[in-house]
Design a protein around this nucleic acid. Sequence first.
DNA 1: TAGATTGTTAATCGATTAACAATC
DNA 2: TAGATTGTTAATCGATTAACAATC
Lengths: 210, 210
Amino acid sequence: MKIPKPTVKRLAVYYRCLDNMLNEGKTYVSSKELAERLKIKSSQVRKDLSYFGEFGKRGVGYNVKNLIAELKKIIGIDRRWRVVVVGAGNIGRAITNYPGLYKNRFDVIAVFDSDPAKIGLSAGVAGPVKPMSDLKEVVSSKKVEIGVIAVPAEAAQDVAEQLVDAGVKGIVNFAPVTIDVSPEIVVEDVDITVSFKTLAYHLRKYGKNR
Amino acid sequence: MKIPKPTVKRLAVYYRCLDNMLNEGKTYVSSKELAERLKIKSSQVRKDLSYFGEFGKRGVGYNVKNLIAELKKIIGIDRRWRVVVVGAGNIGRAITNYPGLYKNRFDVIAVFDSDPAKIGLSAGVAGPVKPMSDLKEVVSSKKVEIGVIAVPAEAAQDVAEQLVDAGVKGIVNFAPVTIDVSPEIVVEDVDITVSFKTLAYHLRKYGKNR
DNA sequence: TAGATTGTTAATCGATTAACAATC
DNA sequence: TAGATTGTTAATCGATTAACAATC
């Protein structure tokens, strides 16, 4: 069955929300409660989940722990993923040491940079920064599936090609350019400034109406 | 006229792409070229722009410089915005020192943290980390419009309330919880792990088909 | 049983796309 | 003029929502 793209994004949101609810001590939750917390409709929640199976009990709701476990399987985080980061600048280092990534089962196992001055500097959890010449060896020997591009726009395409050549299957691209790779590689683009710009757009609009 | 939400997001994408094209020395661009670069349809580009005016010349295309200027006005970045960051951890520091933010006309003017051990440490471009007790004074005296939440989930709601109380009009929330503020405050949620999870979902799916 | 909530259908709503007259 | 590309309409496609029978 074809899954709507927005549904896939929301699965991660449900997972996060349920995790918070579990911490609050909730054992059961209804689609209504979940929807209210996320400011969406309860029928949306039920529809999204229904693409993947029947996880609730009529009249009762969903068992929080159980639904979390099911979502882990659906999202693909019932296992750990190995990640390398290219670029030891602000973004690269923040990603590498972001506890939320490890918590969500992504292990950054190495950080690379082309700047000789940065090689050997500590990159926190991922040990010292490694030279680009080590990339291929590390990716293949450690069976790394995901590469993160955290370099300036000019270098992004070249880094993308090196990552693909080294053998990663997916790329998270923080560089502000569209990269061009073969279609079997999954690419997720993240532009940190987009949310600020969207905010500016809405703030401006509100201002105009006053 | 009602503007589709996806259109607003794409405006920022067009802006970024045109900026890259300008750097490549392009003076005119057609909707076809822009669309190919972004892997969308040319009619989508034209439709999106048509909500805001007529910016092209039939038979010729769009003047790159001119379209950039128009998009700046539409998005709301024909002026600079003042930003404060709360949380001097990995994410807070990366946001503060991210050159792309400054380039896109967002000025981080101060960083705050509740941890006494972090007060006074350098936060790069924004000077030393300030205590939360200074937040209200700084926001009002410097006329700050945007607040960034870069604290752990548990502290996010409290920080959101302090930011609103201090007078910000919009919030970019990096904490992995939905925050609850009065509806005239514009909130953009950013979850860094979502793109990794979406990647995991697609990688898993591809694997299954093999 | 009575009350609650699921899973699913069908209707509605919103976004994308093709097509083409207008016009540079 | 001939060729190209816009701006816009109308058709299509996809996502959300309301409604309700099923059932815990």
